[in-house]
Simulated scan of single mutants.
Amino acid sequence: MEAQTGTEMGATQPDTGSGTTRAYNFNGPPPLKPNQGILVNYILRFVAFLLTFISAVVLGAAKETVILSNSTIQNGIIKSTQFAAYVYFVIANVVVLIYSLASLMISIANRGVLGRFTVPLSIGDLMMVILLYSCNGAAAAVSILSDNGQPNTGWNSICRVLTKFCGSIKASIVLSMFAGVVYFLFVVSALVGNRKQLQIR
């Protein structure tokens, strides 16, 4: 019988020099083992918790004292809580960090074998993606206006003076965006897993 070539499991080819056969795998690197996949899940959920925690704290505490003739300044202090988009950003990131901690605890308690929790967590991960991208978009829009201004509507650039405040805002948005990428990976991973299960059936 001739050796199979180009199959999913690879191909075998005789070695004329030693009389042995060598196996070649054309499918790229092997998939993660179950234990490795569980560990990656733990790490990513903890990273998402850490990123959203830091971004919420940094943006929530962002403020700077300055004297400007601007209606958003109260007693010479500008705070992130004076902007509705930033308040929404903080609340959204707090929701995500609570979910990240809860989902991590559920995963650890079930040792990665989620069973009946698989679908609810997948739906929750998708909701976190939507929430993070929504709040990041809102905060980024205000940050861009604060940085560049909008002369036609009377919105003056404030980041030329409030460098510390604007720097904290930008750093928080970047961290939160990374958290959004983490949850996007969870959603993609769940879709790929479901597709493989359907193919097996």
Rank of each mutant, 00 (worst) to 15 (best):
V113K: 10
G76Y: 02
I67F: 14
V119K: 12
N110Y: 13
V119Y: 12
Y86V: 13
S146L: 10
L126H: 09
A92C: 10
I144Y: 08
I67M: 13
I91S: 04
V90M: 08
S80T: 13
L162E: 13
F89K: 05
T65C: 08
D125T: 07
G180W: 00
Q150I: 12
V87A: 14
S71Q: 08
K170L: 10
A84R: 15
I158H: 06
Y86S: 03
G149W: 04
A85C: 02
K170Q: 14
D147A: 11
C159V: 12
V87M: 15
I67R: 15
V113A: 01
V96I: 09
Y86D: 01
S157R: 15
S176K: 02
V129N: 01
N152V: 06
K79I: 09
S122G: 11
K164N: 15
S122W: 03
R160N: 09
P120V: 09
S172N: 05
L145F: 12
A179K: 00
N152I: 11
E64Q: 15
V181R: 06
G180E: 01
A139E: 06
I123A: 08
T153R: 07
Y183Q: 06
L101N: 02
I106M: 05
I144L: 13
R111H: 02
A102V: 10
G180F: 01
A139M: 08
G115D: 10
Q150K: 14
M177V: 05
S134K: 02
I123V: 10
Q150R: 15
K79H: 11
V174S: 12
S107A: 14
V113T: 13
V90D: 03
S69R: 12
V87R: 14
S103G: 15
L114V: 07
M177N: 03
N136L: 04
A140P: 06
T163Q: 14
A140G: 07
G154I: 15
F165V: 04
S122M: 07
